[in-house]
Design a binder for these strands. Structure first.
Lengths: 245, 245
DNA sequence: CGTTATCTTGACGACGATCAACCGCAGTGG
DNA sequence: CCACTGCGGTTGATCGTCGTCAAGATAACG
């Protein structure tokens, strides 16, 4: 359909978009140079410090964003303050809920982040003229659904130790998407602090801390500065995701 | 785009589709009479008894289905047999995972069901020629994602009593989609047996049974034949979803 | 350096799992 | 016809995991 995209010269593309991951692996890859130019008239790049809110619950969605750098957490709240993280998003994910005026989750910066945002109206117009754009959004939604369901299994049926191991594995797989074929050592930074991990796993901070200690003492992981995790043997971590250590 | 759909005569539409809910609220509403006719050359109606499997895990997806009657449960398994229901689907939902060769969940008939199925290839071809079809699939995926996230909050942060109340409320809202504006009495049949409810809530059968008894004794619900539930006051049930009774 | 956020560790208790017995009901077959 | 079996559900007693409360350790920061 959009063979206009073939053999385009870089100079047709807005400066900001040229080096942008969202144009390669994200939703903007669906757009022609002309559409990118048009969208660019309304986009804004923005940085948020860790903890700042992009979007609060039940509030009208004004702008959608692509994540350029950092990690965004999606949170749900109960009236008495209990909270659960229901999704994590990484660059170059699209964030926001298409076709609905208000969001049912809170979007927070889990780390310092950088996003490229655009008005709701721009997205809706572009979807109308580009089926390929909707296809990319659809694909991302299906992947988030797969992840959410995988996580429901973890929340509902795994014990604390398995939950923590599963979380570490989840983060590891975002550092290395090819992780399923690997089995050697790997190391990464945790993008979440303990209280976020607890909210993600449906546990308390104390339990998370104890289980991390346990994995450390069992030699499944090493920890530096509370944030850097080294996994000497991925298979042992994988094992810990489904069986008590 | 598809204004061919306007002012069509019923006789253009395949017999099987005429009274079908999927043509009104389901994905087939996106199709022109011609497309319906074409799809109809490959569709099969099929019934399954409660407990029968439509699709097993990690097995290649041959056919997708629309649910015409009954309830389908989507289940995930752990190696040692623990299981979690990660989704429930009702008529006229589309069931199956587009754009992926194998399914990561098991699809079971929770009740006796009736479906209309079609080959993977047919769907993929139709998506190519009908952006409106992909839009409907996208919309359903987004709604399932919303539901999954709502359920993650329940799994991660609610206690047994709140979980059971939330489950009852979930079923009630599928019987009456306008439930948010209601507050009077309502009654319905539970489509799931106790063990399924337990697998949906991340609990054991015994705990589910005890909590139902507790809600019954507190007067929040009445139960007949273990399957029929009467809710005299919806607000009390709503209350029980977030606070200990 | 003091102050505050973040994380760890310990002691204890509650909630839900586990194990076991029992009830009601529908089939099934002698 | 009744005995037997299997299935779904309930209830009770006991145990273990994880939450709660409290204190300290470590790191981050002005």
């Amino acid at each position: 359909m959009n063979n206009a995209r073939k053999d385009i010269h870089n100079s047709d593309i807005p400066v900001l978009c040229r080096a942008c991951e969202a144009r390669h692996r994200g939703i903007c890859g669906a757009l022609t140079p002309a559409q990118l130019v048009k969208l660019n008239q309304h986009t804004k790049q923005h940085s948020y410090k860790s903890g700042q809110e992009l979007q609060s619950a039940d509030q009208e969605v004004e702008r959608y964003s692509n994540i350029l750098r950092g990690v965004v957490k999606l949170t749900k709240l109960l009236a008495d303050g209990r909270q659960q993280i229901v999704g994590l998003q990484f660059a170059p994910d699209f964030t926001g809920r298409p076709f609905r005026r208000e969001s049912h989750v809170i979007a927070d910066a889990a780390t310092d982040i950088q996003v490229c945002s655009f008005p709701r109206k721009s997205l809706e117009e572009l979807i109308g003229e580009s089926p390929e754009l909707e296809h990319r959004l659809h694909t991302q939604a299906l992947e988030e659904l797969d992840e959410a369901r995988e996580w429901m299994l973890t929340l509902g049926r795994k014990n604390a130790g398995e939950k923590v191991a599963s979380f570490l594995f989840l983060i590891a797989s975002h550092v290395d998407p090819e992780i399923d074929e690997r089995d050697g050592p790997i190391s990464f930074e945790l993008p979440l602090k303990r209280s976020d991990i607890a909210d993600f796993l449906g546990l308390t901070i104390e339990t998370v801390s104890r289980q991390i200690t346990k994995l450390r003492k069992a030699g499944v992981i090493e920890v530096e500065n509370n944030r850097t995790v080294i996994v000497p043997d991925l298979d042992r971590l994988r094992f810990a995701c489904e069986r008590e250590t």
